[in-house]
Structure formats: structure tokens, C-alpha cells
Design a protein around this nucleic acid. Structure first.
Lengths: 232, 232
DNA sequence: GCAAAAGTGTTCCAGGTACACCCATGC
DNA sequence: GCATGGGTGTACCTGGAACACTTTTGC
């Protein structure tokens, strides 16, 4: 038996797909691209693409994010979500996709790249957006649930905001992602009681509209929230 | 532009690797196989293998589990853990592995299959087991951490036990996995206060050793624990 | 009786909810 | 002044930690 008998057999195409979430117009939104080629030509889908030979999985996801949004990874949160590999999930053959979840502030206008006829933000609410190609409905659902869960015990909510932000901004992130209202004064106490969640900039507030100007904050060093901020 | 121009390019070999955990001899143990072939010949590794053409990822993991332990999936808990795909993680080429976590009661003796020179249970404690091949140290670490975290808010601890079991058995699962002692009376109250975590069999206890015999329970329907049982 | 494990009761306290109330700003 | 959102104070309650105490078994 020679070493050549153990020659590697490539049995799949591996891609990364992105669930990129942001908050805009008072709603949680996901980045979608309109497919320029079959299969599912003309249908909306999550952005994604093949993993290149010298790239690791997170690197491929970061590259996709950069290509689609112009956002560089450190300024957005990027984490592995799950992998999907049902034999018939893509009619072209066995494609295994490693999905990543990205959370970012609503800054850049997405750009349609080579494989996409169009690109843009859509509400995650299933009644307010197009149906997705492949098994991307499942992937999106898993991504949104992951985001909702992570807000409870991590400081990721701040990833949806640009600095500096007010505590009301932060609370609105929670309310929009969870779809339920939070008691403002108790929310404030919980956030400030968590060492390193936010730090005051000392800066005063831009008086935008009526009411007392709010104090400004930026992200702290903490990543894990203890105690957590639990969904109602 | 023809459809043939979009011919699928297979760029990787996809495998599933298993982190199979059980409790034996008062310690958390992981199933390892000794590699019969290069690379890493003679080194211990997590069991795993290539995904077959007509199998989905969970199916491949369930098949591996059956081949290595004789355990059928429903009697053990099996869930996707994470995927690992660094370009150089396997010297043979691009191998992306989707890792699965399995929790099971300590019943079967593992059997060495075709690719393994040996197979057996080893403590997860890094000082009491061999070093692992590839990036399997990382995968094992992620699996153990996932197991520890899931005990808090799910009823998975019961997956480590055969029915019927006592509340002390269940408490010992938590203590062994978390590596810290729990207050017996408070643990009892928390478990019984959670609707559907365990149900009494009515059966009395086998008097094994000194002390009052314990009541027996089996698993309930609940999967999520609310409120959770948090680590000290 | 004594030791050991099962099981019950009780006290104390941290953290959450709900809500009243004051503060600073625009109009 | 009035409306609005920011920010503070407080009373109530639930759930967890700690620990005393009773029950049932083996020896």
C-alpha cells in the first residue's frame, strides 16, 4: 500500500454565505443580492461565494463582506453561524456552505458585484421582503435567532451603532432586534451596572428635537455581559 | 454564455468529525481513535470521515457515531458544533470538517473500525490523555465548552444517563462536567421546579450502599430550562 | 447507635420590575 | 407654560445561596 493510495478525493464545493444584519428605518435589515445567473436567476439570496485555495473560512467571509459592503472586518462583528450541506440544496451539485453572521452599523450603500444584478437592504420580517433562493430562508432564520440570543449575554448590540451613541440608541437596538419594548430607566441601570459595557465620552448631546439632551457613550472593553440583559 | 460555463468546481474534501462525550469513572471522557494511516499515523484523533454523496451533514455524523459506538442517533444527543477549514489544517490538501457534538451514556465499548488501529474513551482533561492530531485539540475544546454551556439552559444533562436515574446521578453529571460542586438540596429544588425536566417513575431506589434510597426519575419532555441552572 | 445519603424548611440577599418623580431642553 | 425625552429614587417581589434539620437506609 503506497501513500498514493490515500490521494485526496475532493467531494464538494465549499462556499461561505453571509447573514449581514443592520438596523435602518427602525427595522432589522438583511443584506441581499439579486442573482444574475442560474440557478434561481433573478431571485434574491444571501451574499456569498467560493472559498479560495489559500483562505481560511473566516477569511473568505471577511472578503465577501468587504466586497459587498466595503466594510472591513474589525469595524463589523463577524462570527461563524453554522454549516449547511443537504445533498440537494443546490441543483448544481454538492455545495456545502459555511454561513457567517455579521452585525454592522447602517453606513455603506451596498454595491452589486459581478455575480449580482442588484444588492440592497431588506427587512428581515418575512412579510416585508422577497423570498430567498436555495435554503437561505433557513440560514437567515438561524442568523436572526443567533443575533437575538447574543444580545442577551454579550455587548454586541453596540455593533449596530456608530460611536458615539446614547443609551436610548442602544435601547432601541434591543427593542428593534427583539421586537419588544424595554423599560428605559431599568435598561439604563443594567447597562451602566455592567462594568465595561459602555464608557461615557464626557461629550454632551446633540439636541435633536425636544427633550433633555442625552449623554454620549462609546463601546467598552467588555464582551460578555454579567448579569445578562434578558428578553422580556 | 451557456449553462456549461457555470460547471461546478469541487474545491475541497468535506468530512465530519465527532466530539463524543460521556461520563465514566467519575470523569468526562471523549471518544478517540488511533490513526492507522498517515498523516499523524499512530496519533490519537477525533473519529470522523468523509461525507458521502447522498448524505446530509447530520446524516454523515450519525453514521460515524453508529460505526464507532454502535449507538443509534435518537438514543444519543447529536448537534452541529462548528466548521474548521484552515488551508493547512490537513497536509493532504483542503479538507473542511463540520464538527458534531454527541452526548451519550457510558454503555458501549467502542470498536476500532477500518481506519483506526485502536479506539477508546479518554478523559478530556488535557493532562490525562494523549495529544491529538490535526486541529482536534481546538475542536475538542470547543465541544467541551459547548457541552458546559448547554447544561445551563437545556435538559441535556440527562443524555449522559441511562434511565431510570436519581437526582444525585443528575447532579453528579453537572458536577463532573462543570468541575465544581453543587449544593444538593438547592439543585433538587431547581430541577423539580422546572416543569418537564424529569418525571418520577414512582419506582423506589436500589439500595446501593449506605444511606436512604433515592427516588427514580426519567427524562421529561422539556428541552429548554427556564429558569436556567447556572454555573457557580 | 452511628454514618451516610435523601429530602424538607427557612432565612437572607441580590437582582429584576414597576412606577413615581425630578431635570433639561424645544416650542 | 407645556410636552418630551433624560435621568434618579424606591418599593415590591422572585429566585438563588447557605444551612439547619428530619428521614431512611446499612452496618
Amino acid at each position: 500500500v503506497t501513500a498514493e493510495a490515500d490521494e485526496l478525493v475532493l467531494n464538494a464545493a465549499v462556499t461561505t454565505d453571509l447573514v449581514v444584519l443592520t438596523i435602518a428605518s427602525g427595522a432589522l435589515q438583511v443584506l441581499l443580492v439579486k442573482r444574475a445567473r442560474p440557478p434561481f436567476r433573478g431571485r434574491w439570496a444571501l451574499p456569498g461565494g467560493f472559498v479560495l485555495p489559500n483562505e481560511d473560512l473566516a477569511g473568505a467571509a471577511a472578503r465577501e463582506l468587504r466586497e459587498e459592503t466595503g466594510m472591513v472586518a474589525p469595524s463589523a462583528h463577524l462570527e461563524q453561524l453554522a454549516s449547511y450541506g443537504a445533498p440537494k440544496r443546490d441543483p448544481r451539485g454538492r455545495i456545502v456552505t459555511v454561513a457567517y453572521l455579521a452585525l454592522m452599523a447602517d453606513l455603506p450603500e451596498p454595491v452589486a458585484d459581478t455575480d449580482a444584478a442588484d444588492a440592497g437592504w431588506h427587512p428581515v420580517d418575512v412579510d416585508a421582503r422577497p423570498r430567498l433562493a436555495f435554503d437561505h430562508e433557513t440560514i437567515l432564520g438561524d442568523g436572526v435567532e443567533r443575533a437575538r440570543a447574543k444580545l442577551e449575554y454579550s455587548s454586541l448590540a453596540a455593533s449596530f451603532l456608530t460611536e458615539p451613541f446614547t443609551l436610548s440608541d442602544l435601547r432601541r437596538v434591543y427593542e428593534i432586534v427583539w421586537g419588544s419594548e424595554l423599560e428605559a430607566s431599568n435598561f439604563r441601570r443594567k447597562v451602566l451596572a455592567t462594568e465595561g459595557f459602555v464608557v461615557p465620552t464626557g461629550g454632551s448631546a446633540p439636541a435633536e428635537g425636544r427633550g433633555r439632551p442625552a449623554a454620549l457613550y462609546r463601546r467598552g472593553e467588555a464582551v460578555h455581559l454579567n448579569p445578562p440583559i434578558l428578553r422580556p
